[in-house]
Amino acid sequence: MMPIPWRVAERWDETADTFTVALEPSRPGEPPGFKPGQFNMLYAFGAGESALSISGDPSLPGRRLHTVRKVGTVTSALARLRPGDQVGLRGPFGTSWPMTDLKGRDLIFVAGGIGLAPLRPAIYHALRFRADYGSIRILVGARSPADLLYAAELANWQEIPGVFREVTVDRGTAAWNGHVGVVTKLIPPLPLDPGNSAALICGPEIMMRYTATALREKGLPAAAIHVTMERNMKCALAHCGHCQIGPHFICREGPVYPLDRIAFWLTQREV
């Protein structure tokens, strides 16, 4: 599948090691839409391709945001992009957060670090169709206050009625007077209606595992818990084999799963 050139409209830093690129199609015509939780394959000229979740607003498909952490060759090449440069884009791929099925429910978003990026399109969706959902809780864990992604936006969301936000950091600073510790610690004191809530979780696998356990202890059924998986991906077409966990091709059956479908594999080591 050939990539299509998209133009970098804007690029800004989010934290010390993360940045966001806003892409727009370089060809005229209606850009393909995407669903919250889906990902694109972004090609940086000469460096290669990376599977990157979409972190922008699904109601603005012509402005494709990707928040990226600089960790390897491709993401470092993407970090050097400037407005006017082009990237190759294939996608969107994969499953999405089941926003339609979740209508009428209280939503609990739990993010670890850059895990907030793939959740943000779902948060945008829930806020845009606010009346479709009950309360919205956004629980975020970051390494330090400076590593907190979308800090200003989180503060703004807090002002919306029925939206509740909690942030915890691994290491505080002198100025930090919020929670310190892992994000799973925010769950036990949470008042929630287990029969009418749904959780959307994104973070490192170990964080998702413990978060799911904490939510299960609050009475949330496994089918109401959704996680998004990550693996090395080369093709996004279920052909290259890299993203497999057990029988799952994460690029095709994932990345978003109801917990009951992936729980067995999420609890195995080195699969």
Partner: peptide
């Protein structure tokens, strides 16, 4: 694929 980049930073596949 082959990819080319022109002076304006445009990509051609």
């Amino acid at each position: 694929l082959g990819a080319g980049r022109d002076g304006e930073g445009n990509l051609h596949f």
